[in-house]
Design a protein around this nucleic acid. Structure first.
Lengths: 175, 175
DNA sequence: ACGCTCGGTTCGATGACTGAACCTATCGTC
DNA sequence: GACGATAGGTTCAGTCATCGAACCGAGCGT
């Protein structure tokens, strides 16, 4: 958010948060990371984001400790970007934002989020009404809804047609 | 978000939400509205936002049904911007975002949010642990914390030094 | 008639985003 | 060992949003 004006005068943790994740595309990158996307190229294709912007976002997210860059093979050298604790902690925000967007601006259910242990659909705060608990991110099961119409040329889009747990890494190779 | 590229390809309610409230300053305007700010000039001074940008944000927020423009006196004609249901529904998102920012990027408590009925501090989801309920926005009491250091020339900043309920309109006149 | 406040609009300069092209290293294949 | 493909970027020109300051008009109060 290095624009002439930052939110410096705002003594407010919302403003601080927005300085870090408030830029265009940033929260969508984090969303994809929660969905299990880890590689530069997968982000690129699934988001349709300009390459330069993606590189910039991955760098600042890494610098802020939200993603961690990690080598997963040596030859050829390839890195992946994995969410840290701090990044995973953005799930409630994304959940709330998504619930608001769905409630007010979307028709047709695009995805369902369920408690993997019992199959109950999550409430607006990411809680399981049946178990009476906040569901840990890794126990959230994501399923496609009827309103979903995936892009056939995008392997990530197709991979998201199967029920998956959040954070479970994508297997793009055999896609 | 009328940039060359919108988030059109994203079949996702998070992306839809971000198209509406994802622009710079927008969520801070909504935050101030929750805090009780209603007038153009109060937003202007408290946010330190360029006038043209504020005018644009107020217009799109009104167009999207998040704020409502309402005449509060006839002579001279003056309008105020008040949150609608749809705008108030953004509270959980802002609460989650603020909790994340405070947890990871702020030192010193800036504000406390409590359940007005019982004084218990709100949990990260805006719930009252003691009463076991999600606290309605109008029953949230906001109090200044020790880390707060208000701008003395800004009447809104000073008004926020007193405990206040969310949505309670500001009285800027006698400030 | 004068200045003040409120709520804007206009405008030039700056900076972020976009899309396309280019680049490097490594692999698999012939 | 030349050839093309793939992953992960960087560079660059053009466009669009944001910034800050100036201007504007209606309706006060005096």
């Amino acid at each position: 958010m290095a624009l002439g004006k930052d939110y410096a005068t705002q003594e407010c943790s919302i403003a601080r948060a927005l300085e870090i994740v408030g830029e265009r595309w940033t929260l969508l990158v984090v969303r994809d990371a929660l969905y299990g996307v880890r590689r530069y190229n997968d982000f690129l294709v699934h988001l349709g984001i300009p390459r330069a912007v993606l590189a910039a976002r991955l760098q600042t997210l890494t610098a802020e400790g939200i993603l961690e860059k990690r080598r997963y093979q040596e030859s050829p050298p390839r890195d992946e970007y994995v969410l840290t604790e701090r990044g995973i902690a953005l799930w409630p925000t994304l959940r709330a934002l998504g619930a608001w967007g769905r409630e007010h601006f979307t028709d047709g259910r695009l995805r369902y989020f369920r408690h993997a242990d019992c199959g109950t659909e999550l409430g607006p705060y990411g809680e399981c009404a049946r178990c009476g608990t906040i569901v840990p991110v890794a126990d959230v099961l994501m399923e496609p809804g009827p309103g979903l119409d995936p892009d056939p040329v995008d392997p990530i889009s197709r991979a998201l047609l199967k029920p998956r747990r959040l954070l479970e890494p994508m297997e793009t190779d055999q896609a």
